[in-house]
Design a protein around this nucleic acid. Structure first.
Lengths: 235, 235
DNA sequence: CCGACATTTCGCCCGGCGTCTAAGAGTCGT
DNA sequence: ACGACTCTTAGACGCCGGGCGAAATGTCGG
């Protein structure tokens, strides 16, 4: 009596992620924005033809979606399940050794504040969750009454986030900080509002976001406490 | 100004999982038990030489541990982080088409009850969590007072589980049922007790566990409600 | 000390996949 | 309608990595 593996077949999906070029593309897309094929080619450092082939495979494997706009084709992650896989893998993987000064600068930016598919991560994300907890706005994976009022005042549609099929307000382990930030439908909704309000804006490097002066003031008023990000400017 | 990916490098880990042979090995090890190199070779359907090469790579990549006992070398997953990656990937991956009758039988066994690295999964795991919730023993990712008493009576060292560095009692999305079962330190502790008591015993196929008559009686007494597993025997 | 068994190492073959250049298909602006 | 631009397809090349058998290493039992 021989046992033959017959579980869910994880190899095909892993294969799609395993190639360094595709991994770079997926990681870039983890920023949550849709990127054109050409941008992805440049980011991952291959020719347009090679990038196209990779994107076709990712598309076939259901890891990315595509939307055509004129002569551009914008690719994005197929859903937050894909983002979860990438985040879990990132958490397990050693930090890539920094090779250049520019890379070091970009790495610092990402550690400071970035989007994790559709919610805020990095030091900014971790300290936001910390302050929600300290203020008694969040406990046991849910908002408290004061938290619900606070976020509603900020402009977050909390009931709508509760209706979403994904988990409402899970803690998501941050791979740079190794502490939790806020994920799920609520994390996404808050991040959307923060970007709409211009409290954070997207940086030039994929995934990176930076706190604006407006955001600094607004958050200080909303959530008294330490700065949401370190004072030392990224040089 | 060119952007070059510099995030955590997820490709190497993905590469280790991407090979079908290694994926089969890792999936088998998800059962939580350490398996000898020879067993893993048989399970994944390759020669001992090939298996050895794969295991060396998995070892180098930190995905598995090894412990030598006599002329056997027992391999096991390096930690629950690895198990998490595999579970998340399994959740994303399509079910492998069933090819033979025996495979279908084994698949049914796994859907019924299996270990997910170190805690109970499948219909049994999902319905266990359901009943804990229904009985008011578990809410908001934590045990209630009655739940703590109940499990202590069963023989679970709850305070010890709370002290563990991993999360205490997270809900873990089941890839066959697509509903949550209990994971984390508490899930592991409960499962250990269930196996020690002989309420469940490990099946012949990796990962599979079956409810014993003792277990049926014990659980019915402990958690009144529907059967923990379906009545229809697996034929 | 020797034979049986588990595992690893070595040498070799081979297929698949990632890469590029060049050409084709589709889209926009003028 | 034409050229410029974006992206995909086609074809060819190179190489990494998985597969096996045979031999070496290590371990247990007598």
């Amino acid at each position: 009596m021989e046992y033959i593996a017959h579980d869910a077949d994880i190899a095909p999906v892993a294969t799609l992620i395993a190639d360094p070029t595709r991994a770079a593309m997926l990681t870039a897309l983890l920023g949550g924005r849709a990127l054109a094929a050409g941008e992805l080619a440049r980011i991952s450092g291959v020719s347009a033809a090679t990038a196209s082939a990779h994107l076709a495979r990712l598309l076939g494997g259901g890891l990315v979606d595509v939307v055509s706009q004129g002569r551009h084709r914008y690719y994005r992650l197929a859903g937050h399940e894909v983002a979860e896989v990438l985040e879990v893998l990132a958490r397990m993987s050693a930090r890539r050794p920094v090779r250049s000064l520019r890379q070091s600068r970009q790495a610092k930016l990402l550690e400071e504040a970035r989007t994790c598919y559709d919610h805020l991560a990095g030091r900014a994300g971790v300290s936001l969750l910390d302050r929600l907890k300290e203020g008694g706005h969040y406990a046991a994976h849910d908002l408290t009454e004061t938290g619900e009022r606070l976020l509603t005042r900020l402009g977050v549609d909390v009931p709508d986030a509760r209706r979403a099929r994904r988990r409402f307000a899970p803690e998501c382990l941050d791979w740079t900080e190794r502490r939790s930030h806020l994920g799920g439908a609520l994390g996404a909704a808050i991040t959307t509002v923060l970007l709409e309000r211009g409290w954070y804006r997207r940086g030039t490097t994929p995934r990176a976001v930076v706190l604006t002066d407006e955001g600094r003031r607004g958050l200080a008023e909303l959530l008294p406490g330490k700065e949401l990000t370190s004072h030392t400017p990224v040089t």
